[in-house]
Simulated assay, not measured.
Amino acid sequence: MDDSGTPGAHAGEPHTGGLAQRLNWLRAGVLGANDGIVSTAAVAVGVASATSQVTPVLLAGAAALVGGAISMALGEYVSVSSQRDSERALIAKERRELATDPEAEFEELVGLYQAQGLTVGTARQVATELTERDALKAHLSIELNIDQDDVVSPWHAALASAIAFTIGALLPLATILLLPHPARIVATFVAVLVALCVTGYVAAWIGGSSRWRAVARTVTGGALALVATFLVGTLFGTAVGG
């Protein structure tokens, strides 16, 4: 038994409740940081490539930071709220079905465990024991993969996204504002790409996918965004200067 109290569980594996909540804010945080880094850096680099003055870069970067953080928070809140409402509706539906026709629900549970590879006798015994303990929890788990005590929170996702976006946005903004004009764009490119390596790696770690493939995708996308806005800013600055 590990620290979670689950017999036979391996250390470090998420056998306790709250997994959906933790993944919810981790996912929102990583995506928020990634968007904060890329979008704010793109705006700042675009303006900095058009002018050597600091004030326009500061104003554009600050506007991108504030607007982006609010937009990310609202987007996460709306998205996760819809997911939460759907989960609550499914839980309420299952509760009604158990109240109106418990026999049919029990037989459905037996059939679902049979579909998992258990024999009829074992499936019926498992269904009986779990129904006696918590019928709703048993049905939600096997039918819908939902834990009624671990429904995701839109507020957690919104807050994590806004904070992470702000932190991510501060990195390129500080780099491009504090360094002198000849070096600040190159330094911002480097800082952004390094930061994207970190967020890409963490995102892959959370999702259990290939780390280096995720890093390559994230860095490539960020680099394309920076190059595009740099070219736009350069063309605009040349046109205005001309």
Score class of each variant (00 low, 15 high):
63 A>L: 06
141 S>E: 13
175 T>S: 07
77 Y>A: 07
91 I>M: 01
159 L>D: 05
127 A>G: 10
113 Y>I: 00
91 I>E: 02
186 V>D: 07
80 V>Y: 00
68 G>P: 03
74 L>N: 09
151 V>C: 08
194 V>T: 11
99 A>T: 13
185 I>N: 00
187 A>H: 03
197 C>T: 15
94 E>Q: 12
123 A>Q: 00
58 L>Q: 08
125 Q>N: 13
190 V>D: 12
156 H>E: 13
195 A>N: 07
130 L>F: 12
84 R>D: 08
183 A>K: 15
171 L>M: 13
140 L>W: 03
161 S>W: 01
112 L>M: 15
164 A>Q: 01
148 Q>I: 13
178 L>W: 10
94 E>W: 00
134 D>H: 11
119 T>E: 11
129 E>W: 06
120 V>S: 14
159 L>G: 04
143 E>W: 10
84 R>L: 10
86 S>A: 06
132 E>F: 10
89 A>C: 08
150 D>P: 02
63 A>P: 04
72 M>L: 10
115 A>V: 08
115 A>R: 09
117 G>S: 09
95 R>F: 07
151 V>L: 12
97 E>P: 01
100 T>A: 11
178 L>D: 09
126 V>I: 13
68 G>Y: 01
97 E>Q: 14
79 S>N: 14
140 L>G: 01
114 Q>T: 03
120 V>W: 05
188 T>N: 02
85 D>W: 12
189 F>E: 00
172 P>K: 00
180 P>R: 04
159 L>M: 15
64 A>P: 02
187 A>Q: 06
82 S>Q: 06
127 A>Q: 01
72 M>D: 03
126 V>C: 04
74 L>D: 05
83 Q>E: 14
193 L>C: 08
93 K>A: 12
92 A>R: 10
121 G>I: 02
106 F>I: 06
190 V>T: 10
197 C>S: 09
115 A>D: 12
148 Q>S: 07
138 A>S: 09
108 E>R: 11
155 W>S: 12
189 F>H: 00
185 I>L: 07
100 T>P: 04
182 P>A: 14
61 G>V: 02
88 R>H: 06
155 W>M: 15
156 H>W: 15
170 L>R: 02
196 L>S: 02
149 D>T: 14
86 S>K: 09
157 A>D: 07
67 G>S: 08
